[in-house]
Amino acid sequence: MTKKTYRVGKLSDAIEARKIPLSAVVSGGGLVFVSGLPPVNWETGELVRGDILVQTRQSLENVKAALEAAGSSMDKVLKTTIFAVNSAYFNDINQIYAEYFPSEPPARTFCTVASWPWEFDIEIEAVALA
Rank of each mutant, 00 (worst) to 15 (best):
T112I: 14
V40I: 15
D51W: 03
V48W: 05
P21G: 02
F120T: 10
V40H: 11
P105K: 00
A128H: 00
N91K: 10
I52N: 01
N41R: 12
P39F: 06
I96V: 15
S35H: 00
I96E: 11
M1W: 06
I15Q: 03
T44Y: 15
R108Y: 15
N62S: 01
N62W: 01
K4L: 06
P117I: 11
D51M: 04
Y89K: 02
F110W: 03
M1F: 08
A24M: 05
N94Q: 06
W42K: 11
P106W: 01
V77Y: 02
I93G: 04
I82R: 02
K3V: 07
S35A: 12
F33Q: 07
S23K: 10
I122D: 10
A24F: 03
V25F: 07
Y6G: 05
V40W: 14
P21C: 05
I93T: 04
A24I: 00
A114R: 06
L67S: 05
L129Q: 11
S23I: 01
N91D: 04
V25I: 06
L22M: 14
G29I: 00
I20F: 07
M1N: 08
W42G: 10
P38T: 05
A126N: 07
G29S: 01
W42L: 11
Y97E: 02
K3S: 03
N62T: 01
L11E: 03
E68G: 15
